[in-house]
Design a protein around this nucleic acid. Structure first.
Lengths: 231, 231
DNA sequence: CGAAACTTTGATCTCTGTCAAGATTAGTGG
DNA sequence: CCACTAATCTTGACAGAGATCAAAGTTTCG
């Protein structure tokens, strides 16, 4: 485990003793771009944490329509470790390093530690909150709002795992962003171009520079995520 | 507590001893149609279980756009009992009976019981799964798919709390259904009318009869929810 | 260097939203 | 119990945001 899961479960640090125990259960795996990690509905004999790279987690409809639930970043568990079946599919965007755990062993370990159980519970609650925010965005947002908020959220999520840089990497293709936001890849492309023409962003290969990204004063309730505009 | 929470936490039964302990913490409250139970962002000094009636749980945008996350039914907790702030707003549709718990006491009680902790964890995982299914529907479904699946899911959820009847009650107004599915009330109304003209349903005041509701053979993966059509 | 994958851009279409008017239902007080 | 009013629901006409179809332009990678 090269980059240990010091910030596993929603960014909260594990104590060093538990972290060592956890490492004993893990096997490191490396996957290449586009490779499948697991598929929705499969028995989850093993579960995965992400050490390096980016992963898309999604659900499919029988006719191939796809909804990306989230993009997994280093330090995060992929899916719900306690569920006996995978509730989503996951595959690698770019190259990834994973920590593979036997689920039964991991669950046993989690159950043995009240501290870890509490952490996982809070992690689950946090994931629900994020998914509900996404549901609000997908259900009620315009294309511009969706793309703008995606960029802002992506930046703030990245800031937690890598040094903040002028240029924000977008390792996933437009189609993935579209399937995340309930739009088409053409609309993503057009909206990004529109923002660029307004000098709100600059598009670079596999990335974007957020230049004139203004936040609206429209903040939901107290200190919730703002809905920015790219005007 | 007239109708005890025998099936609290995702339908799984509590053991009688724990149920009695839980009841000691609860205070019964009755609310009238449209009354607010709690609002997103508020400190959750108290949390609520639903004994009778239907509740809408939603998030608001500053400009008033609303996304209904779910409709609460008897036997369910409203929101996430462990979170110190309410992540959603909730208000009564029709008359409701609630069980009010002091959150600190409830959390203490949950923590004291490994069985209850496990149950609550599985409940949280289940809620996440449902929200992800909703995200898929809202992000990728057509208006017809959204309404058809809403009706089928609503029927099956109701079946767990009331005797199945020919006529399915729809206590919530069209606007609530629209805000649940990411549509407008006019589209809900038109789509229901369309289904009625195809003899798939019959509309009655505050309810609907599902007559020729056919399920497509399109089943996601193994034994997941089918996407029905009203054709 | 060249092929494949991805992205941008254009033209057109259509589903759903918006605005507006009636029709139905529910609620209230005489 | 009925009349009257308010809320909810249905229906129509129209418009527009985003989807779809198609082609050209970039980037990536062997």
């Amino acid at each position: 485990m090269p980059r240990a899961f010091a910030t596993l479960f929603c960014g909260e640090a594990l104590d060093p003793q538990e972290l060592r125990e956890l490492q004993k259960l893990a096997v490191q795996v490396r996957l290449h771009p586009g490779e499948t990690i697991f598929a929705e509905g499969e028995l989850a004999a093993e579960v995965f944490g992400l050490s390096r790279g980016v992963v898309r987690l999604y659900k499919l409809l029988p006719d191939g329509r796809r909804q990306v639930m989230t993009f997994g970043l280093p330090g995060e568990f992929l899916g719900t470790p306690i569920a006996c079946r995978h509730g989503v599919s996951a595959d690698a965007i770019g190259e990834v390093d994973l920590c593979r755990f036997p689920r039964i062993e991991l669950v046993k370990f989690i159950r043995s530690s009240p501290n870890l159980t509490r952490l996982l519970m809070e992690f689950a609650a946090h994931r629900l909150e994020l998914t509900q925010d996404q549901l609000l965005l997908v259900g009620k947002g315009s294309a511009e709002e969706k793309v703008a908020i995606f960029l802002v959220n992506w930046r703030s999520r990245l800031a937690r795992v890598t040094a903040v840089s002028e240029s924000i990497p977008l390792p996933m293709p437009r189609q993935d962003i579209a399937d995340f936001l309930g739009l088409t890849l053409e609309t993503i492309s057009r909206t990004l171009t529109k923002f660029e023409q307004r000098n709100a962003i600059r598009l670079v290969p596999k990335g974007v520079l957020l230049t004139g990204l203004e936040r609206t004063p429209l903040v939901r309730h107290r200190s919730h995520a703002a809905y920015p505009t790219m005007i």
